[in-house]
Computed example of a mutant assay.
Amino acid sequence: MNFRTRHREDPEINLIPFIDVLLVILIFVMLTTTYAKFTELKINLPVANAQSTKPRPKELVVVVTADGRYSVDNRQVEGRSVELLAAALTASTGANRDTVIVLTADASATHQSVINVMDAARRAGLSQLTFATQGQMGAAAQP
């Protein structure tokens, strides 16, 4: 007969299978997750709450209507080409190249109409351009 006392070892939890399962789940999650590129491009557009500034002495207002007609300093431009618009800008500014163009475009105006004004300003040698916006209360504001 064997009367020796046996030493019982405390039971231990084997963590290796648990870690293996977690690694498989981690790999599965990494492979099935979709990363949207557009989340990087989220922007918040600023609200134009600025109060209207005083007219500057070297300021030229160019208006673009919804149907694509142009007006330079309250004078209608006869035509819609970039060349005619550049000629009207040159005639209104003369030799003064420090004139700031305030572009007031209708919300329904085409993008091409606005680009035409910018191109005409470049051809006329005018490099300072700003956009007029409408405030929340409906008053016109300029940056």
Rank of each mutant, 00 (worst) to 15 (best):
R123G: 00
Q112P: 04
V72S: 08
L84Y: 08
E83P: 09
R56Y: 03
R75W: 05
H111Y: 12
Y70A: 06
R69N: 12
Q76L: 07
T104G: 13
S52V: 03
A88C: 05
M118C: 03
V117M: 06
L89K: 08
M118N: 12
R123H: 00
V62P: 13
V82I: 12
P46M: 01
V82T: 15
G68C: 03
L84M: 10
V63G: 07
D67E: 13
P57E: 04
S71H: 09
T104A: 15
L60K: 13
T104K: 15
A105R: 15
S92E: 14
Q51G: 02
R80G: 14
Q112W: 05
P55C: 00
A66W: 11
D73T: 04
E83R: 12
S52E: 11
Q112L: 02
A120L: 05
L126S: 00
S71I: 05
M118E: 15
T104P: 15
T90L: 05
V61A: 08
D119E: 06
R75G: 04
S113L: 04
T93D: 01
A109M: 12
S81C: 11
Q76Y: 08
V61E: 10
V100N: 09
L103A: 14
G125P: 01
T93Y: 02
V47M: 10
R80K: 14
Q112R: 09
V117P: 09
G68D: 11
S81G: 14
E78W: 09
R69H: 09
G125L: 00
N116T: 11
T65S: 14
S52F: 02
T93Q: 00
S127D: 08
A91H: 08
L126I: 03
T110W: 10
L85H: 08
N116Q: 10
D73E: 12
A105K: 15
A124M: 01
V114N: 14
M118Y: 09
R75Y: 09
G125W: 01
A124D: 00
G79I: 07
V64N: 13
T104D: 15
A120M: 04
T104C: 14
I115D: 13
A105G: 14
A105P: 15
K58R: 10
S92I: 02
V77G: 10
A107E: 14
P57V: 03
V47Y: 09
V114C: 09
A48F: 13
G68Y: 07
Q76V: 08
T110E: 13
N49T: 05
K54D: 05
D98F: 03
H111S: 12
S127Y: 08
S81T: 14
